[in-house]
Simulated scan of single mutants.
Amino acid sequence: MTERATQRPKDFVKPAHWTSDPAPRPAEPKLEPDPRGLSPTRYGDWEQNGIAVDF
């Protein structure tokens, strides 16, 4: 079995575009009113001809 590397080689040079900054937070979702009632993406069901269909 090959040993797993836990450190970079001593001659490793970090590329200029790498950063130690944390990833940005995702944008808040836009809440748009659903003209037909409950949002299928929120509740997990689509309504077709009066029948709820899971997707």
Rank of each mutant, 00 (worst) to 15 (best):
36 R>P: 00
12 F>Q: 00
21 D>S: 10
3 E>A: 10
46 W>G: 11
32 E>A: 11
12 F>D: 01
31 L>K: 10
21 D>E: 13
55 F>S: 07
36 R>Y: 10
54 D>L: 11
48 Q>I: 15
11 D>F: 01
20 S>N: 10
24 P>Q: 07
4 R>C: 05
15 P>G: 06
14 K>V: 04
39 S>A: 15
44 G>A: 09
4 R>H: 08
48 Q>N: 13
8 R>S: 00
35 P>R: 03
26 P>S: 09
4 R>E: 13
17 H>L: 03
20 S>C: 06
16 A>M: 00
9 P>Q: 03
44 G>C: 11
13 V>C: 00
16 A>T: 03
19 T>R: 04
46 W>C: 13
21 D>T: 12
20 S>D: 15
4 R>S: 09
52 A>N: 14
48 Q>D: 13
55 F>D: 10
1 M>E: 02
51 I>S: 11
54 D>S: 15
14 K>T: 11
39 S>D: 15
54 D>K: 11
46 W>S: 09
1 M>K: 08
9 P>D: 01
46 W>L: 14
33 P>A: 07
37 G>L: 02
39 S>L: 08
20 S>P: 02
25 R>T: 15
9 P>E: 02
39 S>E: 06
5 A>V: 03
48 Q>R: 15
44 G>R: 08
43 Y>I: 11
6 T>H: 04
42 R>A: 14
25 R>V: 08
36 R>T: 11
40 P>S: 09
17 H>V: 06
30 K>H: 05
35 P>W: 05
19 T>M: 03
34 D>Y: 14
13 V>W: 04
2 T>K: 08
41 T>W: 15
36 R>D: 09
9 P>R: 04
21 D>W: 12
8 R>E: 01
23 A>V: 14
39 S>Q: 12
50 G>E: 06
24 P>M: 05
1 M>A: 15
35 P>S: 07
25 R>C: 07
54 D>A: 14
37 G>S: 05
50 G>C: 08
19 T>D: 10
13 V>K: 06
17 H>P: 00
6 T>K: 07
41 T>D: 15
16 A>V: 01
50 G>V: 09
45 D>L: 15
33 P>N: 02
53 V>F: 05
3 E>T: 09
8 R>M: 01
